[in-house]
Write a protein that binds this DNA or RNA. Structure first.
Length: 445
RNA sequence: CGGGGCGUAGCGUAGCCUGGUAGCGCGCCGGUUUUGGGAACCGGAGGCCGCGAGUUCGAAUCUCGCCGCCCCGACCA
């Protein structure tokens, strides 16, 4: 993309109603624009990040064998009356009436609807196990939205629902989600720690939430630092291997890690003192097992081997996709701006043309642009007629992981400058070498 | 939902107390000089001062009502 043809409304000054870093930076980098309290438009740069996150989530879900669907944002109240939640949910549920005076709602979650879909299409245990998921906008009419997209009223979420014949099968689905979530966050460049959690209004027995450590997090967290050392790395995960998934779950959930809701001071004290950590975290996902809470009242039954109709065991599992954008920035920024991990950066590299109009510089930039595009780096070329300082500041603000600076001075010596946003380190090398290096870095993503 | 605060140009703000031509910085447009870290100068465009009533000769300013937004707390993915 060429910056001169793009829409990137960056702000030099910070809008007054943004308190935390991610909110400030998202507004300043022209990623979002607020339309009402807790409701945002996603401008081109922000939309790119959101799409990259969605792609990773889709890939990892499908790798785990989960099946994508798409359910509507608006739901009929009838389904929620069946489960009893239409009246039980409280004011966070946005209720709407259509022209025929029918009660509708803007879905904050989809347990009822997915259960309805399941019961109308599945009647035998032979169809199990099955996990359906979608990525869709949700709405919770929070009393007090804040922190930009981290706690908006409208938010994009991946929510998945598993259907299994037995408790054991359902726990396998739980572990599958645990492992796939770990992979998902790791791919995004985040360290998310599963913590034992409260089940809240969705209800359920077994549940973990995934928290990204950040000073601005909304929850206080207590953990054994050993858990932050864990990494899935290149490990081959076989989602059908129950023993392996059980082991992964044990590995991540054995070290103490809890939010203040479930914190147990006595247990915490048993951790060696140098590993005992207290901090704050941003919740970016949660997995639940809730058994037959919905399948029984809503009649989601299958015939088992004996022909008896039994309610299916279910769980639901969410990843806060739009919130992740904020969490990523909280985890990766400095006083100059955002520092995107390569896998989720809106563009892989920025090419700064220091002398627009100079035939040699223009030609070199075009060449680099073509090479990076061909290599899948997805570059952003700053071909505006602006001063160097302004271009550098923009690149740093929007946080592209790599910057290639091309000017007459360097070209005279046959070099360009390659700068890493994360470390701030620069090196001079030929344009070809710079492109080759970036191609290598992005090849694995 | 309790407490506090704020709505003035795209963004940040002054003016409001004490009523009388709506100002500044950034950004934007044109020009000249500049050009490897947010340039300088000259010229310019852009405001129903959140909305509605009231008081007054006269309201951004005072009064009342409404709407919107933000912060702290409770709540929450």
């Amino acid at each position: 993309m060429r910056l001169s043809r793009y829409f990137l409304p960056v702000l030099k000054e910070t809008p007054s109603d943004a308190q935390i870093a991610s909110h400030r930076l998202m507004l300043r980098a022209g990623m979002i624009r607020q339309q009402a309290a807790g409701i945002y438009s996603w401008l081109p740069l922000g939309f790119r990040v959101l799409e990259k996150l969605q792609r990773i989530v889709h890939e990892e879900q499908q790798r785990a064998g989960h099946i994508p669907v798409l359910m509507p944002t608006l739901q009929p109240a009838e389904l929620w009356r069946e489960s009893g939640r239409f009246d039980a949910y409280g004011k966070e549920l946005l209720r709407i009436r259509d022209r025929h005076d029918r009660d509708m709602l803007y879905g904050p979650t989809n347990e009822e609807m997915i259960t309805d879909i399941f019961r109308s299409g599945v009647s035998s245990y032979k169809s199990l196990p099955m996990t359906l998921y979608h990525i869709q906008w949700k709405f919770r009419d929070e009393v007090r939205p804040r922190f930009g997209v981290m706690r908006g009223r409208e938010f994009l979420m991946k929510d998945g629902y598993n259907f299994d014949l037995t408790y054991e099968d359902s726990m396998h689905a739980y572990n599958r989600h645990m492992a796939s979530y770990l992979r998902t966050y790791e791919r995004m460049g985040l360290k998310a720690i599963p913590m034992r959690a409260d089940s809240g209004p969705i209800g359920g027995d077994d549940t973990h939430e995934f928290l990204v450590l950040a000073d601005t997090g909304e929850s206080e967290v207590f953990y054994d630092s050993a858990v932050t050392e864990l990494t899935l790395g290149d490990r081959a995960v076989d989602y059908d291997d129950r023993a392996q998934l059980e082991a992964i779950k044990a590995e991540w959930t054995t070290p103490y890690a809890r939010t203040d809701e479930t914190h147990d001071a006595a247990l915490f004290e048993q951790i060696p003192e140098d590993r005992r950590k207290v901090g704050r975290g941003i919740e970016v996902g949660q997995i639940f097992y809730f058994g037959i809470k919905y399948s029984e009242p809503m009649g989601a039954m299958v015939a088992d081997e004996t022909g008896a109709k039994v309610p299916v065991h279910m769980g639901s599992h969410g990843i806060g996709v739009s919130r992740l954008v904020g969490a990523l920035i909280e985890a990766h920024h400095d006083d100059k701006g955002i520092k995107w991990p390569e896998a989720v950066a809106p563009f892989g590299a920025g090419i700064v043309n220091l002398k627009v109009g100079d035939p040699d510089v223009d030609a070199a930039c075009a060449q680099i642009y073509a090479a990076l595009s061909a290599a899948g780096v997805d570059p952003l070329l700053d071909d505006r007629d602006e001063r160097a300082g302004q271009k550098f500041a923009t690149m740093e603000l929007i946080g592209l992981p790599w910057r290639i600076t091309v000017g007459p001075r360097g070209l005279k010596n046959g070099v360009v400058e390659l700068t890493c946003r994360a470390t701030g380190e620069s090196e001079e090398l030929s344009a070809e070498a710079a492109c080759l290096k970036l191609a290598g870095i992005f090849a694995g993503l």
